[in-house]
């Protein structure tokens, strides 16, 4: 759960570059795990082997085995697909909706803009996680509600940025110039406003993707997401919570993967933002 903290430029770009490369590499591994999990593990994530239950991590089972003898590493690898899909889907929906709403507000007359801004403010007054919880309260638990909840909860943040960006671009010299030159308003919007807004939004989305994955894991952990035996990360984690005293690895490793994913998304996002500012300024 990362919060956009404005311009972070604590060290030279080069130091950030190493971090960004490491982060990208990790995210790339995740993509591989999502697309072709069999490349990373030979074990079956669903097939139970009770006699192999609760084995500590070893070379054979890098993350150990769970209470029914399934390889935790294989479950995490195969679970990547679900967790990544939820993260990407929720972020894309949130960003698209946010872009739409924000741009409209930025271009609309003051009254409509005011109304939209109020709604965004009210929604932003709710913590994202709580908002997602409330959406699930209304829709009922399940994977579809999970995606809707996470994306809805993130829309206001994107909408706000899109609105401010639209404002800035709209008032900038070149758009005004274009308008004076007789370019239709909708065209200048498409040509200038949307592309200019998209950049910062994509950077935000990189960070937001991490947040979405963490939220999804949290909601699944509470039992409000996909059902077993789908090896989503949050679900594996929650299965391990009663074995903390005897088999810590079931809960610890999936959580570690979630954390590293969030960190990677965050590092990459910050790097992109820093670069964007560097070139734009």
């Amino acid at each position: 759960m990362t919060v956009p903290l404005g311009r972070t430029r604590l060290r030279p770009l080069r130091a950030g570059l190493a971090g960004a490369i490491a982060a990208s590499a990790f995210l790339l591994v995740l993509v591989v795990a999502a697309v072709a999990p069999a490349l990373l593990t030979g074990a079956d994530p669903i097939q139970t082997q009770v006699l192999q239950a609760l084995r500590a991590p070893s070379i054979e089972h890098p993350f150990g085995t769970d209470q029914t003898g399934r390889d935790v590493f294989a479950r995490v690898v195969y679970g990547t697909r679900y967790s990544l899909a939820i993260g990407v889907l929720a972020t894309t929906i949130a960003m698209t909706a946010g872009l739409l709403v924000g741009t409209l507000a930025g271009l609309a007359p003051r009254v409509i803009d005011g109304a939209i801004s109020r709604v965004i403010e009210v929604l932003m007054s709710f913590p994202e996680f709580l908002l997602a919880l409330l959406v699930i309260a209304i829709l009922g638990p399940g994977p579809v509600s999970l995606v809707i909840a996470i994306s809805l909860a993130a829309v206001p943040v994107y909408a706000r940025v899109a609105r401010v960006q639209t404002f800035t671009v709209r008032r900038s010299g070149y758009v005004r110039a274009a308008l004076i030159l007789g370019v239709p308003k909708w065209r200048s919007v498409l040509r200038h406003v949307v592309p200019n807004t998209l950049g910062p939004l994509l950077v935000m989305a990189t960070i937001g993707f991490g947040t979405a994955i963490a939220s999804a894991a949290g909601l699944s952990f509470l039992g409000l997401g996909p059902q077993p035996p789908t090896p989503g990360w949050g679900l594996i984690l929650s299965e391990g919570r009663n074995f903390l005293g005897t088999a810590w690895w079931i809960a610890v490793f999936p959580g570690l993967v979630v954390t590293v994913t969030v960190i990677s998304a965050s590092v990459l996002g910050r790097f992109l933002r820093a670069r964007g500012e560097g070139t734009a300024a």
Binding site: I46, Q47, T48, V50, D66, Q67, T68, R70, G223, Q227, P228, P229, E239
Partner: peptide, 22 residues
């Protein structure tokens, strides 16, 4: 839940799908 995992996994072996809903 673990027991259900085992049953579901075993039955897959005879081509019987079990869909679980909590």
């Amino acid at each position: 839940a673990s027991l259900a995992d085992v049953i579901q996994s075993d039955l897959k072996g005879i081509g019987f799908e079990i869909v679980r809903e909590a």
